[in-house]
Write a protein that binds this DNA or RNA. Structure first.
Lengths: 217, 217
DNA sequence: ATATAATTTTAGATTGGCCTAAAAATTATT
DNA sequence: AATAATTTTTAGGCCAATCTAAAATTATAT
């Protein structure tokens, strides 16, 4: 059984590695966890001893198959709880993250299976992110950050990154929700800002915003 | 903000003190928490420093008004989550306790208020225990353990103590649920066992069982 | 009333998760 | 290739929550 802290580190490693694709450096992980590098090294050793990650001194960590599954089961819980909070308790989009961060650590497979059933087996959470199944399998749609798009591109928003509640409020205001169509009207190479059409409204996006909007590739 | 452990100790003190009525001894608290007396003394000092309990060396602890309110807000969460698990996720009576023990420590007033609303402002949980309101007020009905009843007594089950899942399974089997009528047919003074009528069935109860059934006084 | 038993507290150690400061290894620069 | 800068690890310490063993206090029994 993983401790709450171990779960949080593992989840962060999974996300920083982009689903296991890349190695994660100690300092990047420390920054994500809001801890110092020394603490992070300690935890890396612990997760490594539990075979959830592989670790080569000074060269960062990679999630193992076992670690990936464990991470996906935590993410499954997080996303099912977010769905519950929005659909059943009428939380707004930007309120859910913090509470779901706590709820995801409740240890009961039975609870999560029942919750999934109660919600009608949703496949994506309110941010548009896919919900892993009870074995930890996830369907990853090919997606790309809106900041990568060329002028003239038309596509559908799949998901938005949910790290910051202020960003979510802003995205909500401009109507950038999963499922919405988006068209790139113009793009300024200098600062990588762009203008898009969404709901027949012209919206200006800085790169800081556009990189958090994931669209069909 | 109380730590998870502090919350658990405080709740145990509240229950052992029967709602603040009695003093709680170190050893009894240690037993309830499955820790050693020495650890319990440490925690008593901590809760005392936070003015949640008053403590006189060697003579046990009493919950303060502040501690009582804090305990009742934890109990509120526990009972609302139990209600959710049974009513919405179709947990059986005996499955809920362990999961609710974890859910009760999620810190979000907003979450609990929304949950309460979603459940339709229930006044009692699935065991029949009253649910404190958002200020920590609770309506205590006069109630008595079934083991105290005399032959011929007729009354209604208010609640059952929910500590042990095997007990709950047994109570479920004999139909001893909150709201059910109960009549005492016979009582054996030697071992304080009794025979009762419930749902037109005669049931024999040892004292170990009957003391966990709370009925109208 | 005093000895014995039981309970409670104190003292000192351990583990998990965190820190700072210093050392070691890697990467970048000239 | 040597030195400087950066990153990472190690060493040693702190706090919360736990433990065991010993000391202190209260309760019981003769």
């Amino acid at each position: 059984m993983l401790s709450l802290t171990e779960e949080n580190y593992l989840k962060a490693i999974y996300h920083l590695s982009e689903g296991g694709a890349k190695s994660v450096l100690t300092n990047d992980l420390a920054e994500a966890m809001c801890t110092k590098a020394a603490s992070t090294t300690d935890m890396i050793k612990k997760l490594s001893a539990k075979a959830l990650i592989s670790y080569e001194k000074y060269y960062g960590v990679n999630v193992s198959a076992k670690g990936k599954q464990a991470a996906l089961l935590i993410i499954r819980k997080h996303r099912l709880w977010e769905t519950f909070l929005v659909q059943k308790l009428n939380f707004t989009w930007d309120e859910v993250h913090e509470v779901a961060e706590q709820l995801e650590h409740i240890h009961s497979v039975h609870l999560i299976d029942k919750l999934e059933e109660f919600l009608g087996f949703p496949t994506v959470d309110p941010h548009g992110d896919a919900i892993p199944d009870r074995k930890g399998n996830i369907k990853l749609l090919p997606q790309v950050g809106a900041d990568q798009l060329k002028v003239g591109y038309q596509g559908t928003i799949i998901a938005v990154k949910d790290s910051d509640s202020n960003l979510l409020k802003y995205l909500d205001k401009i109507g950038a929700k999963p499922g919405k169509k988006l068209k790139v009207l113009a793009r300024e190479e200098y600062d990588e800002s762009m203008e898009i059409m969404i709901d027949d409204n012209k919206v200006f996006l800085s790169k800081d915003v556009s990189k958090n909007i994931l669209v069909t590739a």
